[in-house]
């Protein structure tokens, strides 16, 4: 249930331990529903979700190119939360041949999504650039590697990315 107030539009953050698995949403397809919490400013959390995703997909026999695209989307999204938000979480769900990665944060929101999608545009602070991030390529990388990307952002409240990947197709239309 969503709470009211400053973060009213954001779903409550999970308090589950890192990497905990929840019962699949759809028992018939054996869906796996996995959460990873993320803390703003803490790069040590980065990559836990994408690493778990890589091994889950490899265990399912998903083609290497598809695993790579999924991992790039997950990792870039994790990094975005760490750079821009107070906190957030990465959640992924594998149902049949469809992977859905949902990344929700309590961050500043994206004022102009069109601008944020432009390669090279960034609002990342200098400390992130010292770590090699903040080149303005994160969201474009996600868009390029996803089969579908939905961004729901409210300035002052937060951002939710929903990334969909078809696990059965090795490449997508955006790949050269």
């Amino acid at each position: 249930m969503a709470s009211s107030g400053k973060f009213g539009r954001i779903r409550p953050l999970t308090v589950m331990a890192q990497g905990d698995k929840k019962e699949g949403l759809d028992g018939k397809t054996g869906g796996q529903d996995i959460y990873f919490p993320l803390n703003g400013g803490d790069f040590s959390d980065a990559g836990a979700g994408s690493k778990s995703l890589r091994s889950e997909l490899a265990a399912l026999g998903v083609p290497a190119q598809v695993i790579r695209r999924a991992a790039i989307c997950a990792f870039e999204a994790e990094i975005n939360v760490i750079i821009h938000a107070v906190a957030g979480s990465l959640h992924y769900l594998i149902e049949g041949e469809t992977l859905t990665i949902t990344v929700t944060d309590m961050g500043p929101g994206i004022a102009d999504i069109g601008l944020a999608m432009k390669e090279g545009y960034t609002t990342a602070p200098d400390w992130a650039r010292e770590f090699g991030w903040g080149s303005g390529m994160g969201l474009p990388n996600i868009k390029k590697n996803a089969d579908a990307l939905v961004i729901d952002s409210v300035p002052g409240e937060g951002t939710t990315l929903e990334i969909t990947i078809n696990l059965a197709s090795p490449s997508n239309a955006r790949q050269e």
Partner: peptide, 17 residues
């Protein structure tokens, strides 16, 4: 080839093979 040394480089290298 890079000057970055923090753990995020490992994730990048692993993802890209």
């Amino acid at each position: 080839i890079t000057r970055q040394t923090h753990p995020n480089v490992v994730a990048v290298a692993a993802i890209k093979g």
